[in-house]
Every structure is written in structure tokens, then in C-alpha cells.
């Protein structure tokens, strides 16, 4: 048994190593003095970090990505919370179909989804680039919102709502005064998860970005086509740090185990 335990530990270490090595390389390269991505780096400098802000497109697309992620998540919450509530509390004809429908964007490959949005929104309905980008992101993050909120609602006993109604609160008031405060941590988690997904999205964004309007991941892709300096590594470090901070907030509000259920 002891030998087996050792073997497993070794195996686990290898997997961790495999996962973490690229991150170490990128982080290392980001703080080097070389003009090219190199590992191990020579010297230490913050100039690549500073260089991010000199590339005007990075700053501009960062803002767009941030806007799209925040607006898209808010929109998805506005639609997703009532949808999740309806799906978990009521029985109606076509419920299973709707459930499948809301979750379908996770099942369809992002490229296919992005391409059909391009055909439909941009080409057929001539929607402005910014709007179609926002709509696309709202739709792709909807499944995460609905899933997380639904599991919050499932853990919230329906008779608590009935108690509030029996005490004289209308259904709408019960939702805001009783249900919402009790699923708040789920809403925060859904927000963060949806935000990260939107912010990092490439396959859908790539079809929906247009002249002058692009997202940060797309801009990063086009940057590495022409430049090989470690600015891109420095930017990755910044994004990683952002994600880690958000994950830390989830862990503190809900625990990450919330998503592995």
C-alpha cells in the first residue's frame, strides 16, 4: 500500500508540474531583460510590464473587454436569474426543452456559435459590431449564470418562500426580500464566473470583432503575429493575477467546491 501511495504522490506531482511549468515560464519571461520570450530569463526588469500601457490597442481593447464582460454579465443575470427561478420553481410544458435550450451554448463549439452569430446578427440584421459582440457574450455566459443560480435555488427550501407569502408578502416582494438575499453568494459567484468567461473568450469574439472594435484576447492574438517581445507575457501575468483574485473572492464567498458538484 505504501509503495502505491508513493507512486500516486509522484504522479500527482508530475501533473501539477505539467500544469504549472508554462505559467512559470511565462511569468519568468515577463520580468526578464531579453528582447524575446526566453526562459530562464536574464536579469530582472519591469519594462515589459510598463510596455503594456504603451501599446495603445491593449489599453483600448482592455476597456472594451471590461465593458463587454460587465455589461454582458449584468444582462445575462437580468435574464438568467428569472429564468433559473422559473425553471427551478415551476412545472410547465416544454420545461426540459427550455432547460436544454438555455444550456446549449456550452454544447455547441464556440467557433460554430460565433460564426452563426456573425451570419445572423452582423450580416443579416446589420447590427453594429459593439452590440453584436455584447449580445454574443451575453448568450455564451448565460448557461453559467443559469447553472450556478439554479443550484443556489435548489438549496433554498421553497416552503421558506411560502412562509413569506402566507405572512402577507406578494410573490414579487418575497423574491426580492427573501429569495435574493439568500442566493446572494450564488449571484456573486455566477457574476465572477461569467465575467471570467466573457473576458477570456476568443472563439466567439473573433467573429464579432470589427474595424476599431476588438477585445483584449483578440488583440493579443494579432500582437503575437507581429511581435515576439515579452510584453505579451507580462500582459498574461496581469490577466492571471486578475483571475486568481476573482477566484479567491469566489472561494471566500462560496468555496470552489460549489462548482464541482
Amino acid at each position: 500500500m505504501k509503495g502505491k501511495g508513493k507512486f500516486l504522490t509522484l504522479f500527482a506531482l508530475l501533473v501539477y508540474f505539467f500544469l504549472i511549468i508554462p505559467l512559470i515560464i511565462i511569468t519568468g519571461a515577463a520580468f526578464g531583460t531579453d528582447e524575446f520570450l526566453k526562459f530562464p530569463p536574464r536579469g530582472f526588469s519591469l519594462k515589459w510590464l510598463a510596455n503594456i500601457f504603451k501599446v495603445e490597442m491593449f489599453v483600448r481593447t482592455f476597456k472594451i473587454s471590461l465593458e463587454i464582460a460587465v455589461l454582458g454579465t449584468v444582462l445575462a443575470l437580468l435574464v438568467g436569474i428569472p429564468a433559473a427561478y422559473g425553471l427551478s420553481r415551476y412545472d410547465f410544458v416544454g420545461k426540459n426543452f427550455l432547460q436544454g435550450f438555455f444550456l446549449s451554448p456550452v454544447l455547441v463549439p464556440g467557433i460554430v456559435f460565433g460564426f452563426s452569430l456573425l451570419n445572423f446578427l452582423v450580416i443579416k440584421y446589420e447590427m453594429p459590431v459593439y452590440t453584436s459582440l455584447l449580445v454574443g457574450h451575453t448568450v455564451i455566459i448565460m448557461p453559467y449564470i443559469i447553472r450556478v443560480i439554479s443550484s443556489s435555488l435548489e438549496n433554498f427550501d421553497y416552503s421558506i418562500e411560502e412562509a413569506a407569502i402566507s405572512l402577507g408578502a406578494s410573490k414579487l416582494k418575497t423574491f426580492f426580500v427573501i429569495v435574493l438575499p439568500n442566493i446572494a453568494s450564488g449571484v456573486i459567484a455566477a457574476f465572477i464566473l461569467a465575467f471570467i468567461n466573457s473576458f477570456n473568450n476568443v472563439p466567439v469574439s473573433i467573429f464579432l470583432t470589427g474595424p476599431g472594435i476588438s477585445t483584449l484576447p483578440i488583440q493579443m492574438m494579432s500582437y503575437v503575429e507581429y511581435y515576439f517581445d515579452p510584453t505579451i507575457a507580462a500582459l498574461s501575468v496581469v490577466l492571471m493575477a486578475m483571475t486568481i483574485i476573482l477566484m479567491f473572492i469566489i472561494e471566500k464567498t462560496l468555496g470552489l467546491s460549489y462548482f464541482t458538484k
Binding site: 427550501d157 416552503s159 421558506i160 411560502e162 412562509a163 413569506a164 407569502i165 402566507s166 405572512l167 402577507g168 408578502a169 406578494s170 410573490k171 427573501i178 438575499p181 439568500n182
Partner: peptide
């Protein structure tokens, strides 16, 4: 409707407002 009846309801699982 329920909220206009003015009936008190006591549930099996108490159903207290947790927050």
C-alpha cells in the same frame, strides 16, 4: 390569493428566514 388570506401557517421544517 395566499398573501391576502391572513392565515398563519406553521411548516413541518419550520421554514424560518435564514438571513
Amino acid at each position: 390569493p395566499v398573501h391576502k388570506r391572513n392565515f398563519g401557517f406553521v411548516f413541518q421544517n419550520y421554514a424560518l428566514f435564514p438571513h
